[in-house]
Amino acid sequence: MGFKLLSKLLVYLTASIMAIASPLAFSVDSSGEYPTVSEIPVGEVRLYQIADGVWSHIATQSFDGAVYPSNGLIVRDGDELLLIDTAWGAKNTAALLAEIEKQIGLPVTRAVSTHFHDDRVGGVDVLRAAGVATYASPSTRRLAEVEGNEIPTHSLEGLSSSGDAVRFGPVELFYPGAAHSTDNLIVYVPSASVLYGGCAIYELSRTSAGNVADADLAEWPTSIERIQQHYPEAQFVIPGHGLPGGLDLLKHTTNVVKAHTNRSVVE
């Protein structure tokens, strides 16, 4: 069995187990497998329904001669939608809004960016022009300005110390501490036991640490421990890039980060 097929099978099995364990909360999309990078042309966006009122959005972007996937989250909030992270750029984010209108038909009224990198804030200006209120932590807003990236308009308070959590509509926002970046936030959907790890969490097929220019490698494993301790009931975990899975993604990420750190020390 090929690795790609095995990865998709694991996603399907995880979703099936969740649907059985929580039949009222989960209505997993039966329309197909989780979209992969090879299936999404740059400039297009796919939506994948995880649970009743919960979707991931998947886009792709060219970077350094390669094409990478990027995940975000959409959560229903009454007759409105909360968006977590842009679709990595203005063109993708405009396509995301169009796809949401086509498939869901509810307005996106608020959006949260989970850290300051372009795959999370690139497209904020498109959201703002569409009347979406954009939010991020003060740290993310400051770092985005320093980096020359787009800056969300509103500040999220109460997320300055490791372990801080605040309720934001249908989700809980959690600051686990520094990891992929010093400002990275985690998003949890309690009604569906869905954990969105953003770039602080890796997919299972990833074996290298990737972009760690703004990471705190020493603190990252401790931050992941905080996530595990705060959300032990999480059933569906979405990484910032690639295929979702279960809580095993947290341990896998820790292993990859520690291996990278150990290699760096040896070198």
Rank of each mutant, 00 (worst) to 15 (best):
A213C: 07
G122A: 08
L173M: 07
F3D: 06
L47H: 05
P152D: 00
N262D: 12
P170L: 06
D216V: 10
F174I: 04
R226F: 04
I238N: 03
V212P: 09
I84W: 01
K91N: 14
I84R: 01
L106G: 06
S264K: 10
P239M: 00
D29G: 10
L13I: 15
T109F: 08
A215W: 03
H260L: 07
T134C: 01
M18V: 14
V212G: 10
F116W: 15
R263D: 15
L173W: 02
L24A: 10
S205Y: 13
S113F: 05
R46A: 08
S205H: 12
T60Y: 13
W220S: 00
S70A: 03
F174Y: 09
A129I: 08
D248V: 10
L82P: 04
I227P: 02
I58R: 09
S31Q: 07
F116S: 05
K102W: 11
D77M: 06
G122P: 05
I227G: 03
S30G: 15
L10Q: 11
T182M: 13
V257Y: 03
A19P: 15
H57M: 00
G177H: 05
F63M: 14
A66K: 12
I17R: 08
Q49N: 11
V171G: 02
Y175V: 03
D85K: 00
V45I: 08
L96Y: 00
V37G: 15
G163E: 09
A51D: 09
Y188N: 04
L159D: 03
A111L: 11
Y188M: 05
G246F: 05
T253G: 00
L82E: 03
A19W: 15
T253M: 03
E150W: 01
P176G: 03
V75R: 02
E157H: 10
G148M: 10
V75T: 04
V121E: 01
M1N: 03
A51Q: 07
I186Q: 02
I20W: 15
S160T: 12
F3W: 06
H230W: 09
F236D: 08
G246D: 14
I151H: 05
L83T: 02
G123K: 04
V75K: 02
E147K: 12
G198C: 05
L96C: 00
I201A: 02
A129S: 11
T134K: 01
Q235K: 11
G43W: 07
H154W: 12
Y196H: 05
T182R: 12
E39G: 14
Y196M: 06
R128C: 07
V108S: 00
A87V: 03
V237D: 02
D164G: 12
G32E: 09
V187D: 04
P190C: 06
I104N: 04
H57D: 03
V67C: 06
G198V: 04
R226W: 06
G122H: 08
R206G: 15
V166T: 11
A90Q: 12
T14P: 13
S193G: 11
K251G: 13
G53D: 13
S56Q: 14
V54H: 00
H57P: 02
P107Q: 14
G210H: 04
L204W: 11
T253I: 06
V266S: 13
I50G: 01
S205P: 10
R167W: 11
L10C: 11
G122C: 06
V146L: 13
Y231W: 06
F236G: 04
E80T: 10
V256R: 04
T109K: 14
N211D: 13
Y196I: 02
